[in-house]
């Protein structure tokens, strides 16, 4: 049973990353292969603010989140907007390029070593029926779910959120009704980076931070998004949690080294059997 609890912990991180993928996919139709790098940057930022500048936590978190928004917006301005021939392959490739640059810069700035971030709350073990969770893991789950809920409220209730949803449905119609689509796209990257940094901050005390962290987290978040149905908000959350639990289950019955392979094996099966994901609707294809 323990695997369910550890699965939910890693799954809620995949869920946050998957949400970032979905928001960008819905507004631009592209997959941002740099989403995982945002998570890594989140860990790095919080490490720098807390351990190097010695800023207290309650101030460090807002600063890191603000920086995340700026990074996301710059990402859109520097990489996405400039692509002259914005077909699918070029856009995928430019995000891969951006991810490589961010990873390389992180290595230059923070070095190759794993950086240690101390826990935000006192360490304790809380037991549940059939297993237990550490206080840090509980924080991860709580923050992730809270973020997902507030984000869904933002999309449902606020007028900016409505503009987002209008862009999802029909960009042309939205722009006729006075929605600035370019602005929304820029904000989408901001929010995606924000989600990544949230994930990075909450996981830093558990996994610590290394400059290569982004690759695996990003790929699994993408896998979670596909599992739940690309572009589907709650599908992404459910996909993340399911992927986490599956992975925890495989890790508990097989050598844990194979864990990463199984996450992708599940994804291959989903792609073969149900490419629209578990909760996605079938879209009309051009072919």
């Amino acid at each position: 049973m323990q695997f369910i609890y550890s699965g939910i912990t890693s799954g809620s991180i995949f869920a946050l990353v998957a949400l970032g993928f979905n928001i960008i996919y819905n507004t631009t139709g592209i997959i941002n292969f740099a989403q995982g790098e945002f998570v890594m940057i989140g860990g790095m930022l919080i490490y720098t603010l807390l351990s190097i500048y010695g800023i207290p936590l309650f101030m460090a978190v807002p600063v890191a989140l603000l920086l995340a928004l700026i990074i996301g917006i710059l990402f859109d301005k520097i990489f996405i907007k400039l692509v002259k021939v914005p077909n699918e392959i070029n856009l995928i490739t430019v995000t891969i390029a951006a991810a490589t640059i961010i990873r390389g810069l992180a290595m230059v700035i923070w070095g190759r070593n794993t950086l240690n971030v101390s826990g935000y709350i006192p360490y304790s073990v809380i037991s549940f029926p059939g297993g237990s969770l550490t206080s840090n893991s509980l924080l991860v789950i709580a923050v992730s779910l809270l973020t997902a809920f507030s984000l869904s409220l933002f999309f449902k209730k606020s007028s900016l959120g409505k503009a987002f949803r209008a862009c999802y449905n029909d960009k042309m119609a939205a722009s006729i009704c006075g929605v600035d689509v370019g602005h929304i796209r820029m904000l989408a990257f901001g929010i995606a980076a924000f989600l990544g940094v949230v994930a990075g901050i909450v996981t830093a005390p558990i996994t610590y931070v290394t400059y290569t962290d982004g690759v695996m987290v990003g790929l699994k978040g993408f896998a979670a998004a596909i599992l739940g149905g690309l572009g589907n908000f709650w599908g992404g959350v459910a996909g993340g949690l399911l992927l986490g639990i599956f992975e925890g289950f495989f890790a508990s019955i097989l050598p844990s080294g194979y864990k990463d392979a199984f996450a992708f094996l599940i994804i291959l099966f989903v792609l073969f059997l149900r490419p629209m994901g578990l909760f996605g609707k079938k879209k009309a294809e051009r072919l």
Binding site: F79, V83, T93, V94, A99, T100, I101, V108
Partner: peptide, 17 residues
């Protein structure tokens, strides 16, 4: 140390320009 950054820059600049 900048090798990875350069790789990324090469790719980005090619795609963009």
């Amino acid at each position: 140390d900048y090798e990875m950054v350069l790789y990324g820059l090469f790719l980005a600049v090619t795609i963009i320009f």
